[in-house]
Amino acid sequence: MKNIALLMLGAVALVSPLQAKAPSEQVSAADPKGIVTAMEFAGYKAVLDTDDDGDPLIKTDFGTGPGFVYFYGCDEETHDKCDAVQFVAGLDREEPMPAHMISRLVNKYRFVAIALDDEGDPWVTWDILTGEGMSTKTFVSALRLYADSLDSVADVVFAEERDKRPVNKTPVTTT
Rank of each mutant, 00 (worst) to 15 (best):
Y109Q: 05
R104K: 12
L91M: 15
T60S: 13
P96V: 05
Y70S: 11
L48W: 02
E77V: 14
F68E: 11
M97P: 00
F87S: 00
G54H: 09
E95G: 01
P98Y: 14
N107E: 09
T37W: 03
G67S: 07
E77A: 12
F41H: 14
K33Y: 03
G54M: 04
L91V: 15
F62H: 05
F71I: 13
A38G: 03
F87A: 01
P96K: 05
K81R: 14
V47P: 00
T37F: 02
D80E: 10
M101K: 12
F87H: 02
E77Q: 12
F111S: 12
D49W: 07
D61K: 12
H100T: 03
P122W: 04
E77K: 15
A84P: 03
D53V: 12
E76F: 14
Y44C: 06
G43Q: 03
P32C: 10
T37H: 06
E76P: 04
C82S: 08
Y70V: 08
G34D: 04
R93P: 01
A113E: 08
A84Q: 08
F62S: 02
E119V: 04
G43A: 05
D53R: 15
E40K: 15
T37I: 08
V47F: 00
F62Q: 02
D51K: 13
D92W: 00
A99I: 06
Y109M: 11
D118E: 13
V36T: 08
T60G: 05
P66C: 01
Q86M: 14
I114R: 06
V88A: 09
